[in-house]
Design a protein around this nucleic acid. Structure first.
Length: 211
DNA sequence: TGATCGATGCTCT
DNA sequence: GAGCATCGATCAA
């Protein structure tokens, strides 16, 4: 254990994000997302993600290929936060992927809460302590994890390789067979793309949004 | 345990 | 004006 190593491994640098999108989506599983705020630090292990892929993906916000006010960061350099507002009340956090101009991103869909549990509970407007077995309700969905970690429009465009919002490597690398894949959630409008197996999760993990 | 539905406001056509 | 990368309540079984 050197001076940069912690209980959750090492901080992921900018270069980590510079790879093809599916590789990045799989590599993000098992990492630990941390958000430091003045209220305190909250963190969780990434257990479920979905990738969204530019013009070849009807489900992607970047599908038209033309950046808009909302999607411009998605077309920027990888490793930045793409945060969008949905259904009039929820935010979702994505990691921008692929090279500049391409328009791909990875949606973080579920975390395993690791630190700042009481803070996350308060942000989710739940009462502490949580009933036995309901820890998963803190962060088992994209809107829930954004709320629990205080991710909103303010975080739009933030770099994800340095405080206050960043990832640790995690402690034990996942084996390929520990990663399950299947169709993405709630993209039925996307035609053929709705069937693409672009949702990835840690097989058997209790903290995913759905088994 | 699962299906259905309302809330709520931004984005893009 | 229509639809949405969701959530939580409610109702049926």
């Amino acid at each position: 254990m050197d001076e940069h190593s912690t209980q959750w491994g090492r901080v992921l640098g900018e270069k980590f994000f510079q790879r093809d999108t599916e590789s990045l989506a799989r590599a993000l599983l098992g990492t630990v997302l941390v958000h430091e705020t003045k209220e305190g630090t909250s963190a969780g292990r990434v257990v479920e993600v979905e990738m969204y892929r530019g013009v070849k993906d009807r489900a992607a916000h970047s599908h038209s290929g033309v950046p808009t006010a909302r999607t411009q960061v998605m077309f920027g350099a990888p490793g930045h936060a793409y945060v969008y507002f949905i259904y009039g009340m929820h935010y979702c956090l994505n990691v921008v992927a692929a090279a500049e101009g391409v328009g791909e991103a990875i949606l973080l869909r579920a975390l395993e809460p690791l630190a700042g549990l009481e803070l996350m509970t308060a942000r989710r407007h739940l009462t502490w302590p949580l009933p036995t077995g309901s820890l998963r309700t803190l962060t088992n969905g994209p809107g829930k994890l954004a709320q629990a970690l205080a991710i909103a429009k303010e975080q739009y465009g933030w770099s994800l390789w340095k405080p206050p919002l960043y990832f640790y490597t995690g402690t034990s690398p996942l084996l390929p067979e520990e990663i399950a894949e299947g169709p993405r959630v709630n993209v039925g409008y996307a035609g053929e793309a709705a069937q693409y197996p672009w949702r990835f999760w840690i097989r058997g993990n209790a903290f995913v949004s759905r088994p």
